[in-house]
Design a protein around this nucleic acid. Structure first.
Lengths: 126, 126, 126, 126
DNA sequence: GTGGTCTAGACCACA
DNA sequence: GTGGTCTAGACCACG
């Protein structure tokens, strides 16, 4: 379910955060749905429980999931997107970086648009 | 000239690498042009010379600049983009992450395309 | 295990890189095997940790080893040779230089072939 | 005549030394033949005279050329190859390194032999 | 515990 | 003057 690469330079806990958010966006995880417990998930993806715990804390901080003590963790039912300049700037900055990097392997604007297209298709298709 | 934020989580040497590549793409730095020496740049952006050196080494490895021993470093005159699956995958992955993140602040595909547009305009405009 | 000569003109970090690659080729280090940690190796060969770190970074860049954050570094399990014109040219050039140099101590083609033979035997023999 | 690449990581003076030795081996420069003066050569290959001077000193040290004060420098007439363990070991070591490196771009023994062949042909052909 | 980054300061070869 | 290497010692994130 979660695609984790322990050899990546991206920290594992961050990969978990991103994968869960991706699954929610894709509709694989639905609002209100229960997530596996820290222990369960750590076994499934063979990762240190502390790492999963850190990922869940981060997701909770971002209000993507809710933890009900003694009951478990759930995908937030009432997530409301709101303006967040910090995050918007990070997104812009990472897209800018990607564009520069693309230039250096010979890709132009059309290629970037195409990659964006593909990414959206993958989100709906899966 | 270079916009360095020492508090960013992105390593300083990487910021230097990215900024220089951005300046080349924008045409602010031209092929064959001499870059500031390691010691000069380290003074300008108040960073340790080793950090600048690390950035320059990385740029040299990527064939973005040439270092001529004893003479200095220069923007590569004959940069040829090559296929590089690893870098392409990194670009795709970072765009995918940006799209997910965008969803969480309420942005959709059109907004992403708009951001890409803006980024390209900024590159040519500056 | 690693044969390092601090008085050599070849940089120490490069010696470490070459020795480790040689040990992998010889089969002394096997795919997936854990390498000594940066601090360990630095003590073993009495060299500054930064120097070992630089060597490991270079090996990682060449995809010879994988570093798993917080866990250590490992011999790459799935190394796939790829075409690399730059490296091929370096090899050709260093062989050409060796041949010229050999001429000056009275060695001809047969002697070079013999040296190549010996080198291959040493690789398998050890 | 001399093929110098100022962007190479190999020092320029060393490139000059190697190129001159290569030309002697190839027969382009014959024993007893006069070499260009330091000033002349430095103009021809657009290099600092000090650099050429350093190259000539090194060649003289290796008894490849002779300097007759006031008359110029000449290719040694009576070069006698002799055993030189130091240089032999360097040659062996650099061939060993080349073989390891070759392994990592997927080349085997036959390929190396082929490269040696080519190098010898190039020496006679030019 | 692991590796990654950064600073400070030194020495060296090269041009 | 230039960049390259190395040491010593520090701090940090990750697991």
């Amino acid at each position: 379910m979660l695609n984790i690469d322990p050899r990546s330079s991206k920290p594992i806990y961050e990969q978990i955060v991103d994968e869960i958010k991706a699954n929610i966006v894709k509709g694989i995880l639905k609002p209100g749905e229960k997530l596996p417990s820290v222990r369960e998930l750590s076994k499934i993806i063979t990762v240190n429980p502390n790492t999963v715990s850190k990922a869940y804390s981060e997701l909770e901080r971002q209000k993507v999931i809710d933890t009900v003590s003694g009951r478990g963790t759930f995908v937030s039912a009432n997530y409301k997107p709101r303006d967040d300049d910090d995050r918007l700037n990070k997104i812009k900055s990472s897209i800018k970086d990607a564009i520069i990097e693309a230039y250096y392997i010979g890709l132009g604007k059309e290629d970037i648009i195409h990659i964006v297209d593909e990414a959206y298709k993958a989100m709906k298709g899966e």
